[in-house]
Design a protein around this nucleic acid. Structure first.
Lengths: 199, 199
DNA sequence: TCTGGCTTTGAACAATCGTTCAAGTTAAAA
DNA sequence: TTTTAACTTGAACGATTGTTCAAAGCCAGA
Protein backbone atom coordinates (compact mmCIF):
# COMPACT_ATOMS: atom_id res chain seq x y z
CA UNK A 1 0.00 0.00 0.00
CA UNK A 2 1.03 3.58 -0.51
CA UNK A 3 -0.13 7.06 0.28
CA UNK A 4 -3.47 7.02 2.05
CA UNK A 5 -6.31 9.48 1.81
CA UNK A 6 -5.18 12.93 2.92
CA UNK A 7 -8.44 14.76 3.47
CA UNK A 8 -10.69 14.29 6.47
CA UNK A 9 -13.75 12.60 5.02
CA UNK A 10 -16.14 13.59 7.82
CA UNK A 11 -15.01 17.19 7.74
CA UNK A 12 -15.47 17.34 3.98
CA UNK A 13 -18.97 15.89 4.23
CA UNK A 14 -19.83 18.37 6.98
CA UNK A 15 -18.77 21.30 4.84
CA UNK A 16 -20.65 19.95 1.84
CA UNK A 17 -23.68 19.48 4.09
CA UNK A 18 -23.64 23.12 5.14
CA UNK A 19 -23.44 24.26 1.54
CA UNK A 20 -26.13 21.95 0.22
CA UNK A 21 -28.33 22.86 3.15
CA UNK A 22 -28.00 26.56 2.46
CA UNK A 23 -28.27 26.56 -1.31
CA UNK A 24 -30.05 23.33 -2.18
CA UNK A 25 -28.98 20.59 -4.57
CA UNK A 26 -29.44 22.45 -7.85
CA UNK A 27 -28.35 25.76 -6.34
CA UNK A 28 -24.96 24.38 -5.32
CA UNK A 29 -22.42 24.10 -8.11
CA UNK A 30 -19.45 21.79 -8.01
CA UNK A 31 -17.19 24.84 -8.45
CA UNK A 32 -18.45 26.44 -5.24
CA UNK A 33 -18.26 23.07 -3.53
CA UNK A 34 -14.63 22.62 -4.64
CA UNK A 35 -13.66 25.98 -3.18
CA UNK A 36 -15.53 25.40 0.07
CA UNK A 37 -14.18 21.93 0.81
CA UNK A 38 -10.79 22.74 -0.76
CA UNK A 39 -10.60 19.68 -2.97
CA UNK A 40 -9.94 19.40 -6.68
CA UNK A 41 -12.64 17.83 -8.88
CA UNK A 42 -10.64 14.65 -9.43
CA UNK A 43 -10.41 13.96 -5.71
CA UNK A 44 -14.07 14.66 -5.14
CA UNK A 45 -15.12 12.32 -7.92
CA UNK A 46 -12.69 9.65 -6.76
CA UNK A 47 -14.12 9.83 -3.25
CA UNK A 48 -17.85 10.36 -3.89
CA UNK A 49 -18.48 9.46 -7.51
CA UNK A 50 -20.70 12.38 -8.39
CA UNK A 51 -22.52 15.46 -7.17
CA UNK A 52 -25.39 13.14 -6.24
CA UNK A 53 -23.07 10.80 -4.36
CA UNK A 54 -21.73 13.60 -2.19
CA UNK A 55 -25.24 14.91 -1.59
CA UNK A 56 -26.35 11.47 -0.46
CA UNK A 57 -23.51 11.36 2.06
CA UNK A 58 -24.58 14.79 3.29
CA UNK A 59 -28.16 13.54 3.76
CA UNK A 60 -26.94 10.53 5.70
CA UNK A 61 -24.68 12.67 7.86
CA UNK A 62 -27.48 15.15 8.51
CA UNK A 63 -29.75 12.36 9.68
CA UNK A 64 -27.04 10.87 11.86
CA UNK A 65 -26.36 14.25 13.49
CA UNK A 66 -30.09 14.64 14.11
CA UNK A 67 -30.36 11.25 15.78
CA UNK A 68 -27.33 11.93 17.93
CA UNK A 69 -28.73 15.27 18.99
CA UNK A 70 -32.04 13.68 19.94
CA UNK A 71 -30.22 11.08 22.05
CA UNK A 72 -28.22 13.85 23.65
CA UNK A 73 -31.41 15.69 24.59
CA UNK A 74 -32.83 12.46 25.96
CA UNK A 75 -29.84 11.82 28.19
CA UNK A 76 -30.00 15.30 29.72
CA UNK A 77 -33.37 14.85 31.41
CA UNK A 78 -35.49 12.16 33.00
CA UNK A 79 -38.54 13.44 31.14
CA UNK A 80 -39.02 11.99 27.64
CA UNK A 81 -41.46 14.78 26.80
CA UNK A 82 -39.05 17.50 27.88
CA UNK A 83 -36.35 15.84 25.81
CA UNK A 84 -38.53 15.90 22.71
CA UNK A 85 -39.51 19.52 23.29
CA UNK A 86 -35.90 20.51 23.93
CA UNK A 87 -34.83 18.82 20.73
CA UNK A 88 -37.44 20.63 18.67
CA UNK A 89 -36.69 23.96 20.28
CA UNK A 90 -32.95 23.74 19.85
CA UNK A 91 -33.22 22.58 16.26
CA UNK A 92 -35.38 25.57 15.51
CA UNK A 93 -33.46 28.21 17.45
CA UNK A 94 -30.02 26.94 16.45
CA UNK A 95 -30.95 27.05 12.80
CA UNK A 96 -32.44 30.49 13.20
CA UNK A 97 -29.12 31.81 14.38
CA UNK A 98 -26.19 30.09 12.78
CA UNK A 99 -27.36 27.38 10.43
CA UNK A 100 -27.93 27.71 6.70
CA UNK A 101 -31.70 27.81 6.97
CA UNK A 102 -34.35 27.00 9.51
CA UNK A 103 -35.92 24.44 7.22
CA UNK A 104 -34.90 20.82 7.67
CA UNK A 105 -32.52 19.64 4.96
CA UNK A 106 -34.63 16.52 4.46
CA UNK A 107 -37.86 18.48 4.00
CA UNK A 108 -36.05 20.91 1.76
CA UNK A 109 -34.76 18.04 -0.35
CA UNK A 110 -38.10 16.30 -0.87
CA UNK A 111 -39.51 19.69 -1.81
CA UNK A 112 -36.80 20.40 -4.35
CA UNK A 113 -36.05 17.12 -6.06
CA UNK A 114 -38.04 15.12 -8.59
CA UNK A 115 -37.90 11.57 -9.92
CA UNK A 116 -34.84 12.64 -11.86
CA UNK A 117 -32.92 12.20 -8.62
CA UNK A 118 -34.89 9.21 -7.39
CA UNK A 119 -32.16 7.82 -5.16
CA UNK A 120 -31.69 11.08 -3.26
CA UNK A 121 -35.44 11.47 -2.95
CA UNK A 122 -35.78 8.00 -1.45
CA UNK A 123 -32.88 8.64 0.92
CA UNK A 124 -34.54 11.83 2.20
CA UNK A 125 -37.91 10.11 2.59
CA UNK A 126 -36.37 7.19 4.45
CA UNK A 127 -34.54 9.56 6.78
CA UNK A 128 -37.71 11.49 7.52
CA UNK A 129 -39.47 8.24 8.33
CA UNK A 130 -36.61 7.24 10.61
CA UNK A 131 -36.81 10.54 12.48
CA UNK A 132 -40.55 10.10 12.92
CA UNK A 133 -39.90 6.64 14.28
CA UNK A 134 -37.46 8.10 16.80
CA UNK A 135 -40.12 10.58 17.81
CA UNK A 136 -42.54 7.73 18.39
CA UNK A 137 -40.07 5.94 20.63
CA UNK A 138 -39.85 9.03 22.84
CA UNK A 139 -43.62 9.45 22.77
CA UNK A 140 -44.16 5.90 23.98
CA UNK A 141 -41.69 6.56 26.78
CA UNK A 142 -43.59 9.73 27.65
CA UNK A 143 -46.85 7.80 27.71
CA UNK A 144 -45.41 5.14 30.00
CA UNK A 145 -44.05 7.89 32.23
CA UNK A 146 -47.53 9.36 32.46
CA UNK A 147 -46.61 12.57 30.67
CA UNK A 148 -48.73 11.97 27.61
CA UNK A 149 -52.21 10.57 27.31
CA UNK A 150 -52.06 6.84 26.66
CA UNK A 151 -55.40 6.80 24.92
CA UNK A 152 -53.77 8.43 21.90
CA UNK A 153 -52.07 6.11 19.44
CA UNK A 154 -48.33 6.74 19.57
CA UNK A 155 -48.04 6.47 15.79
CA UNK A 156 -50.65 9.16 15.29
CA UNK A 157 -48.95 11.33 17.87
CA UNK A 158 -45.62 10.92 16.14
CA UNK A 159 -47.26 11.87 12.87
CA UNK A 160 -48.77 14.90 14.56
CA UNK A 161 -45.38 15.94 15.87
CA UNK A 162 -43.70 15.41 12.52
CA UNK A 163 -46.30 17.48 10.68
CA UNK A 164 -46.17 20.32 13.17
CA UNK A 165 -42.41 20.27 13.38
CA UNK A 166 -41.85 20.64 9.66
CA UNK A 167 -44.73 23.09 9.39
CA UNK A 168 -43.28 25.21 12.18
CA UNK A 169 -39.88 25.38 10.53
CA UNK A 170 -41.45 26.55 7.29
CA UNK A 171 -43.47 29.08 9.26
CA UNK A 172 -40.38 30.47 10.95
CA UNK A 173 -38.71 30.87 7.57
CA UNK A 174 -41.58 33.22 6.68
CA UNK A 175 -41.92 35.22 9.90
CA UNK A 176 -38.45 34.97 11.40
CA UNK A 177 -37.65 35.53 15.05
CA UNK A 178 -41.01 37.08 15.91
CA UNK A 179 -42.56 33.59 16.06
CA UNK A 180 -43.23 32.45 19.67
CA UNK A 181 -41.52 29.14 19.10
CA UNK A 182 -41.71 27.82 22.64
CA UNK A 183 -45.41 28.55 22.94
CA UNK A 184 -46.13 26.80 19.66
CA UNK A 185 -44.11 23.72 20.61
CA UNK A 186 -45.94 23.51 23.93
CA UNK A 187 -49.25 23.76 22.12
CA UNK A 188 -48.33 20.87 19.83
CA UNK A 189 -48.43 18.60 22.88
CA UNK A 190 -51.03 20.48 24.93
CA UNK A 191 -54.08 18.46 23.81
CA UNK A 192 -52.34 15.20 24.68
CA UNK A 193 -50.86 16.01 28.08
CA UNK A 194 -51.94 13.37 30.54
CA UNK A 195 -54.03 14.48 33.52
CA UNK A 196 -53.11 11.35 35.39
CA UNK A 197 -50.11 11.64 37.69
CA UNK A 198 -47.86 8.75 38.59
CA UNK A 199 -45.98 8.22 41.86
CA UNK B 1 -50.06 51.28 -32.66
CA UNK B 2 -49.14 48.24 -34.62
CA UNK B 3 -49.12 44.52 -34.17
CA UNK B 4 -50.31 43.56 -30.71
CA UNK B 5 -49.16 40.73 -28.54
CA UNK B 6 -49.91 37.37 -30.11
CA UNK B 7 -49.53 35.00 -27.23
CA UNK B 8 -52.07 34.52 -24.44
CA UNK B 9 -50.29 35.97 -21.45
CA UNK B 10 -52.36 34.12 -18.83
CA UNK B 11 -51.96 30.82 -20.61
CA UNK B 12 -48.21 31.29 -20.82
CA UNK B 13 -47.95 32.13 -17.13
CA UNK B 14 -50.07 29.09 -16.28
CA UNK B 15 -47.78 26.80 -18.20
CA UNK B 16 -44.71 28.37 -16.67
CA UNK B 17 -46.33 27.97 -13.27
CA UNK B 18 -46.80 24.24 -13.78
CA UNK B 19 -43.20 23.82 -14.82
CA UNK B 20 -41.71 25.91 -12.02
CA UNK B 21 -43.97 24.15 -9.55
CA UNK B 22 -42.80 20.74 -10.67
CA UNK B 23 -39.10 21.40 -11.06
CA UNK B 24 -38.39 24.43 -8.90
CA UNK B 25 -36.70 27.67 -9.86
CA UNK B 26 -33.16 26.39 -10.31
CA UNK B 27 -34.36 23.06 -11.70
CA UNK B 28 -36.23 24.74 -14.55
CA UNK B 29 -34.08 25.90 -17.45
CA UNK B 30 -35.14 28.57 -19.90
CA UNK B 31 -34.70 26.03 -22.72
CA UNK B 32 -37.31 23.71 -21.23
CA UNK B 33 -39.52 26.70 -20.49
CA UNK B 34 -39.23 27.87 -24.10
CA UNK B 35 -40.36 24.50 -25.39
CA UNK B 36 -43.20 24.18 -22.92
CA UNK B 37 -44.72 27.62 -23.46
CA UNK B 38 -43.78 27.63 -27.16
CA UNK B 39 -42.13 31.03 -27.19
CA UNK B 40 -38.72 32.10 -28.41
CA UNK B 41 -36.27 33.61 -25.90
CA UNK B 42 -36.65 37.11 -27.37
CA UNK B 43 -40.38 37.12 -26.79
CA UNK B 44 -40.08 35.78 -23.27
CA UNK B 45 -37.52 38.41 -22.32
CA UNK B 46 -39.55 41.16 -23.98
CA UNK B 47 -42.63 40.11 -22.00
CA UNK B 48 -41.17 39.16 -18.63
CA UNK B 49 -37.67 40.61 -18.46
CA UNK B 50 -35.92 37.59 -17.02
CA UNK B 51 -36.27 34.11 -15.61
CA UNK B 52 -36.94 35.75 -12.27
CA UNK B 53 -39.58 38.03 -13.75
CA UNK B 54 -41.52 35.11 -15.17
CA UNK B 55 -41.21 33.21 -11.92
CA UNK B 56 -42.59 36.17 -10.02
CA UNK B 57 -45.61 36.26 -12.29
CA UNK B 58 -46.07 32.53 -11.67
CA UNK B 59 -45.98 33.12 -7.91
CA UNK B 60 -48.57 35.89 -8.20
CA UNK B 61 -50.79 33.75 -10.40
CA UNK B 62 -50.49 30.79 -8.03
CA UNK B 63 -51.58 32.97 -5.13
CA UNK B 64 -54.47 34.42 -7.10
CA UNK B 65 -55.67 30.94 -8.08
CA UNK B 66 -55.46 29.91 -4.44
CA UNK B 67 -57.54 32.84 -3.28
CA UNK B 68 -60.13 32.23 -5.98
CA UNK B 69 -60.36 28.58 -5.03
CA UNK B 70 -60.83 29.48 -1.38
CA UNK B 71 -63.64 31.89 -2.28
CA UNK B 72 -65.17 29.19 -4.44
CA UNK B 73 -65.17 26.77 -1.53
CA UNK B 74 -66.70 29.45 0.67
CA UNK B 75 -69.57 30.11 -1.72
CA UNK B 76 -70.51 26.44 -1.94
CA UNK B 77 -71.51 26.06 1.69
CA UNK B 78 -73.01 28.08 4.53
CA UNK B 79 -70.40 26.71 6.92
CA UNK B 80 -67.13 28.67 7.03
CA UNK B 81 -65.41 25.75 8.75
CA UNK B 82 -66.55 23.28 6.11
CA UNK B 83 -65.34 25.68 3.44
CA UNK B 84 -61.88 25.84 4.99
CA UNK B 85 -61.71 22.08 5.39
CA UNK B 86 -62.92 21.53 1.83
CA UNK B 87 -60.27 23.91 0.54
CA UNK B 88 -57.50 22.15 2.38
CA UNK B 89 -58.71 18.72 1.33
CA UNK B 90 -59.07 19.58 -2.33
CA UNK B 91 -55.69 21.32 -2.48
CA UNK B 92 -54.11 18.22 -1.06
CA UNK B 93 -55.99 15.58 -3.05
CA UNK B 94 -55.89 17.53 -6.34
CA UNK B 95 -52.15 17.93 -6.09
CA UNK B 96 -51.72 14.28 -5.18
CA UNK B 97 -53.34 13.27 -8.45
CA UNK B 98 -52.63 15.70 -11.23
CA UNK B 99 -50.52 18.57 -10.03
CA UNK B 100 -46.74 18.87 -10.20
CA UNK B 101 -46.26 18.15 -6.52
CA UNK B 102 -48.29 18.09 -3.36
CA UNK B 103 -46.14 20.75 -1.78
CA UNK B 104 -47.34 24.33 -2.03
CA UNK B 105 -45.35 26.33 -4.59
CA UNK B 106 -44.93 29.14 -2.07
CA UNK B 107 -43.54 26.84 0.62
CA UNK B 108 -41.36 25.15 -1.97
CA UNK B 109 -40.01 28.51 -3.04
CA UNK B 110 -39.09 29.79 0.41
CA UNK B 111 -37.39 26.45 1.00
CA UNK B 112 -35.38 26.64 -2.21
CA UNK B 113 -34.36 30.25 -2.63
CA UNK B 114 -31.81 32.35 -0.77
CA UNK B 115 -31.10 36.07 -0.49
CA UNK B 116 -29.66 35.85 -3.99
CA UNK B 117 -33.26 35.98 -5.22
CA UNK B 118 -34.50 38.35 -2.55
CA UNK B 119 -37.42 39.71 -4.55
CA UNK B 120 -38.85 36.27 -5.25
CA UNK B 121 -38.34 35.26 -1.65
CA UNK B 122 -40.25 38.33 -0.44
CA UNK B 123 -43.03 37.69 -2.93
CA UNK B 124 -43.46 34.13 -1.70
CA UNK B 125 -43.41 35.21 1.94
CA UNK B 126 -45.96 37.94 1.30
CA UNK B 127 -48.23 35.48 -0.50
CA UNK B 128 -48.02 33.00 2.36
CA UNK B 129 -48.93 35.76 4.79
CA UNK B 130 -51.86 36.74 2.60
CA UNK B 131 -53.14 33.18 2.52
CA UNK B 132 -52.88 32.95 6.29
CA UNK B 133 -54.84 36.16 6.53
CA UNK B 134 -57.56 34.64 4.34
CA UNK B 135 -57.64 31.65 6.64
CA UNK B 136 -58.12 33.96 9.60
CA UNK B 137 -61.06 35.66 7.93
CA UNK B 138 -62.78 32.30 7.55
CA UNK B 139 -61.88 31.33 11.10
CA UNK B 140 -63.48 34.49 12.47
CA UNK B 141 -66.58 33.71 10.46
CA UNK B 142 -66.58 30.19 11.87
CA UNK B 143 -66.25 31.57 15.38
CA UNK B 144 -69.16 33.96 14.86
CA UNK B 145 -71.20 31.09 13.45
CA UNK B 146 -70.47 29.10 16.59
CA UNK B 147 -68.46 26.44 14.79
CA UNK B 148 -65.17 27.25 16.44
CA UNK B 149 -64.40 28.15 20.02
CA UNK B 150 -64.36 31.92 20.44
CA UNK B 151 -61.98 31.76 23.36
CA UNK B 152 -59.14 30.97 20.96
CA UNK B 153 -57.46 33.91 19.30
CA UNK B 154 -58.25 33.84 15.59
CA UNK B 155 -54.67 34.83 14.70
CA UNK B 156 -53.26 31.92 16.67
CA UNK B 157 -55.78 29.60 15.07
CA UNK B 158 -54.84 30.82 11.62
CA UNK B 159 -51.20 30.23 12.47
CA UNK B 160 -52.07 26.76 13.68
CA UNK B 161 -53.87 26.01 10.42
CA UNK B 162 -51.05 27.39 8.31
CA UNK B 163 -48.42 25.33 10.14
CA UNK B 164 -50.45 22.13 9.94
CA UNK B 165 -51.41 22.71 6.32
CA UNK B 166 -47.87 23.11 5.07
CA UNK B 167 -46.67 20.34 7.36
CA UNK B 168 -49.34 18.00 6.05
CA UNK B 169 -48.40 18.64 2.45
CA UNK B 170 -44.78 17.84 3.20
CA UNK B 171 -45.90 14.72 5.04
CA UNK B 172 -47.94 13.54 2.09
CA UNK B 173 -44.94 14.00 -0.17
CA UNK B 174 -43.15 11.44 2.00
CA UNK B 175 -45.90 8.89 2.53
CA UNK B 176 -48.09 9.36 -0.54
CA UNK B 177 -51.70 8.27 -0.77
CA UNK B 178 -51.63 6.12 2.36
CA UNK B 179 -51.99 9.24 4.52
CA UNK B 180 -55.52 9.59 6.01
CA UNK B 181 -55.81 13.18 4.85
CA UNK B 182 -59.40 13.80 5.88
CA UNK B 183 -58.84 12.47 9.38
CA UNK B 184 -55.79 14.67 9.82
CA UNK B 185 -57.57 17.78 8.61
CA UNK B 186 -60.45 17.11 11.00
CA UNK B 187 -57.98 16.70 13.83
CA UNK B 188 -56.40 20.06 13.07
CA UNK B 189 -59.65 21.71 14.12
CA UNK B 190 -60.83 19.14 16.65
CA UNK B 191 -59.42 20.84 19.77
CA UNK B 192 -61.12 24.10 18.83
CA UNK B 193 -64.59 22.92 17.84
CA UNK B 194 -67.15 24.89 19.80
CA UNK B 195 -69.44 22.98 22.16
CA UNK B 196 -71.91 25.84 22.20
CA UNK B 197 -74.70 25.62 19.66
CA UNK B 198 -76.43 28.66 18.20
CA UNK B 199 -80.10 28.99 17.11
C1' DT C 1 17.56 4.86 -2.40
C1' DC C 2 14.49 2.99 -5.37
C1' DT C 3 10.19 1.20 -6.79
C1' DG C 4 5.14 0.40 -7.05
C1' DG C 5 0.68 1.78 -6.34
C1' DC C 6 -2.34 4.86 -4.67
C1' DT C 7 -3.84 9.87 -4.34
C1' DT C 8 -4.11 14.45 -5.91
C1' DT C 9 -3.95 17.84 -9.36
C1' DG C 10 -6.01 21.17 -12.63
C1' DA C 11 -6.45 21.94 -17.46
C1' DA C 12 -9.79 20.73 -20.53
C1' DC C 13 -14.26 18.70 -22.23
C1' DA C 14 -18.83 18.86 -24.28
C1' DA C 15 -23.12 20.41 -22.81
C1' DT C 16 -26.02 23.62 -21.09
C1' DC C 17 -26.89 27.93 -18.71
C1' DG C 18 -29.48 32.75 -18.93
C1' DT C 19 -29.55 36.30 -22.07
C1' DT C 20 -28.98 39.48 -26.23
C1' DC C 21 -29.99 41.60 -30.59
C1' DA C 22 -30.09 42.35 -35.54
C1' DA C 23 -33.15 40.86 -38.90
C1' DG C 24 -37.74 39.45 -40.27
C1' DT C 25 -42.79 39.63 -39.71
C1' DT C 26 -47.06 41.66 -38.84
C1' DA C 27 -51.09 44.65 -38.92
C1' DA C 28 -52.94 49.18 -37.69
C1' DA C 29 -52.53 54.09 -39.20
C1' DA C 30 -51.78 57.32 -42.87
C1' DT D 1 -50.79 51.09 -50.90
C1' DT D 2 -47.26 52.71 -48.17
C1' DT D 3 -45.51 53.76 -43.82
C1' DT D 4 -44.48 52.74 -39.27
C1' DA D 5 -43.90 50.95 -34.83
C1' DA D 6 -44.42 47.01 -32.16
C1' DC D 7 -43.74 42.08 -31.94
C1' DT D 8 -41.43 37.71 -33.03
C1' DT D 9 -37.63 35.04 -34.39
C1' DG D 10 -33.50 32.16 -33.64
C1' DA D 11 -28.65 32.19 -34.17
C1' DA D 12 -25.21 33.38 -31.24
C1' DC D 13 -22.94 35.12 -26.88
C1' DG D 14 -19.84 34.44 -22.95
C1' DA D 15 -20.27 32.19 -18.68
C1' DT D 16 -20.93 28.26 -16.16
C1' DT D 17 -22.41 23.46 -15.67
C1' DG D 18 -20.93 18.44 -14.09
C1' DT D 19 -17.33 15.57 -15.22
C1' DT D 20 -12.92 13.35 -17.10
C1' DC D 21 -8.13 11.94 -17.30
C1' DA D 22 -3.21 12.21 -18.22
C1' DA D 23 0.33 13.84 -15.54
C1' DA D 24 2.50 14.89 -11.11
C1' DG D 25 2.96 13.94 -6.23
C1' DC D 26 3.51 11.11 -2.45
C1' DC D 27 4.84 7.54 0.93
C1' DA D 28 5.24 2.50 2.50
C1' DG D 29 7.83 -1.53 1.59
C1' DA D 30 11.90 -3.65 -0.62
Amino acid sequence: MANNTKFDRDQVIDKALQLYWRRGFHGTSMRVLQDEIDMRPGSIYAAFGSKEGLFKQALIRYTQLGSEHLQQCRSKTTSPLSALKAFMLSRVTDTQMSSPTCICLLAKTIAELTDENAELLEQAKASLKAMESSFETLIIEAQLAGELNQSQDSKKLARHVQINFSGLRTYIRVYGAQVPTEEIIDNIFAPYISNKSFH
